[in-house]
Write a protein that binds this DNA or RNA. Structure first.
Lengths: 332, 332
DNA sequence: ATAAGATGAGTAATCGTTTACACCAATTCC
DNA sequence: GGAATTGGTGTAAACGATTACTCATCTTAT
């Protein structure tokens, strides 16, 4: 009735637990006939090793912690949701398990001190660097995903390059007054996208006008607020949004001002969020390769667990322009 | 340099490990002065009990498994994403941890047999019942979330009541030819919403017309396909969508047919997904209380872990009509 | 025929906690 | 003043797996 143990199998087969352990793990010699008997009985009883006992002696749990900032999880969920499932899928392929945890401040989550995980994937750029560094000091293998910091392994989006490409797309369509909006610039990814926007202007010898930049606030109304305040003071012909929810929300503000998309204002987003196909018109945006990044982060982390003393690697993943209808055709 | 253990504290303070354990757990008598010394040293060393050792002797892990169907996670992510973070937050409040796992078929995920969790929250109605029953047979405490099955504890949305209310809202606005669309009816929640739609028609003595029902396919184009095929054969004045992504996608199809929302066709969705405010016009929908359900499911599960022999409870949570602009004003 | 080597399996220590039990000293009771 | 109680602590046995050692037994080579 109770869970089967090595001992139960041993008694049943008439050997010692050591032999059973050897037979099941494949390490050490066991007579072929007894190995088969052991395997059969184990199968019959539905045996699986108790993880607590196993971790205790092996000093590893085969669990990976997936850490994300609690605020992050509230709004842009499709983004991190896809990353989460991709990470889980990849971990499972390697027979690892995923511990999901959120952090709100700089205190180490208990799963670390209690040895519940062998390594960490730290997701997003809202995790406090002080926390990241104190984790690093504990010498827990870790990889940053969609974030980067000197000295710490990371897999992240090429935000600068992506925003450069998005802005360049608008410039090629003939736009000269191109705005940039974000929910907030209090976020590394968004600041990098802003930087890419500025570099594109510069590369095409367009002046940077601070009037054309607006922040809103975090959450689903952010883009609406930013765009509304921007339209009150100036009139761009195109706008680069820091992400797709911001773009979608800005589109409502544009229409609320009686303007058409893309005829009056062209809009380009960032992320290729699932909602991008639902906006009216469907949103031109930069695709971010979420599951690819997840796979890379898992691979890197498992390597780091096997082989801890390595120089940090920083893996930057390029984005891809997805053209839909929110930017229209070239201006004349 | 290595993780501090009870033994390390014991040596430092000059007592036995048993005394340290007693002092830290608060069970059993310890002299007040030595207790304080132990607490101080433990704090100093940053001690936290090793979970593997602890689980081994206590026979519990303080981990809860969050199980979801792998397909589910791909598209309607905001929905389950919010549930996930709400469940994690609530578990953390109770000093429990969340193990995230997806299943693709009917094979038991390894975390069960390996004793990695004390209980399970099974999310969504796409998990195969055969799997659910085989988990139940292993006598692992479990609660279904956003799903229900006889004999198994559950916390779920009042889909029938919600769809009834949504449909009634349209009827009150004067609509008589009301369509129902879903990505698929191969899903309990959607079938229940369909049932609520039919009950509302019946309650208001409106005929049910199978012509007015259409399925699309799973994924982001589902609503578009369903609505397009429906519009090819008939012309409703309103449509109830099985969820918000379906509604948003149907709105594109309606516009693609040169029809206006809500003037030509009114649309009501279900879930109050974050995208509902981004559609044009913003979507009238039924709000589903995701974090409330998460809190209830966690509470129920922890109670079931403490006290396993209880009759199954089925907790149905009502929805709320959120009126935006996709249904317009009463028809004349 | 004997030494050396290979093979198979058992014994026991270990991982870090928890806790039943035993023990001694100090206090309280009659 | 001896018995009974209480308080504080240590000893040691679990929990379930892994693995270094040890020890037979059998094979093979010289």
């Amino acid at each position: 009735m109770t869970r089967p143990t090595l001992k139960a199998i041993a008694k049943r087969v008439g050997v010692s637990v050591a032999t059973v352990s050897r037979a099941l793990s494949g390490r050490g010699r066991v007579d072929e006939a007894t190995r088969e008997r052991i395997l059969r009985v184990a199968e019959e009883l539905g045996y699986a090793p108790d993880m607590a006992a196993r971790s205790l002696v092996l000093r590893r749990t085969e669990n990976i912690g997936f850490l994300i900032h609690a605020l992050q999880s509230l709004s842009p969920h499709t983004f991190y949701g896809e990353i989460l499932t991709a990470v889980e899928r990849e971990l499972r392929r390697h027979r690892y398990h995923l511990h999901f945890a959120t952090v709100e401040d700089e205190t180490l989550p208990p799963l670390i001190k209690e040895n519940r995980v062998d390594g960490l994937i730290l997701v997003g750029c809202d995790l406090p660097p002080s926390l990241i560094h104190s984790l690093k000091e504990r010498r827990i293998p870790l990889v940053l995903l969609d974030n980067h910091l000197p000295g710490i392994d990371s897999v992240f989006t090429d935000n600068i390059g992506g925003a450069f490409q998005a802005t360049t797309h608008l410039i090629r369509l003939g736009h000269r007054r191109i705005a940039f909006i974000a929910e907030t610039l209090d976020n590394l990814s968004f600041r990098e996208r802003f930087e890419g926007y500025r570099q594109a202007l510069e590369a095409h010898s367009l002046p940077f006008d601070p009037e054309l930049v607006a922040e809103g606030e975090r959450g689903f109304e952010g883009g609406f607020l930013a765009m509304s305040s921007l339209l009150k003071r100036t009139r761009p012909t195109a706008v680069v949004a820091a992400n797709d929810p911001t773009a979608a929300s800005a589109m409502r503000a544009i229409r609320a001002h009686g303007l058409r998309i893309p005829e009056d204002i062209a809009v380009v987003g960032f992320d290729d969020d699932p909602l991008a196909v639902h906006t009216d018109p469907p949103l031109t945006t930069m695709r971010v390769f979420r599951s690819k990044m997840a796979v890379l982060a898992v691979a890197r982390l498992l390597d780091l667990i096997k082989n801890p003393e390595q120089p940090a690697l920083h893996i930057r993943v390029e984005t891809q322009l997805i053209i839909r209808q929110s930017c229209g055709s070239p201006l004349t």
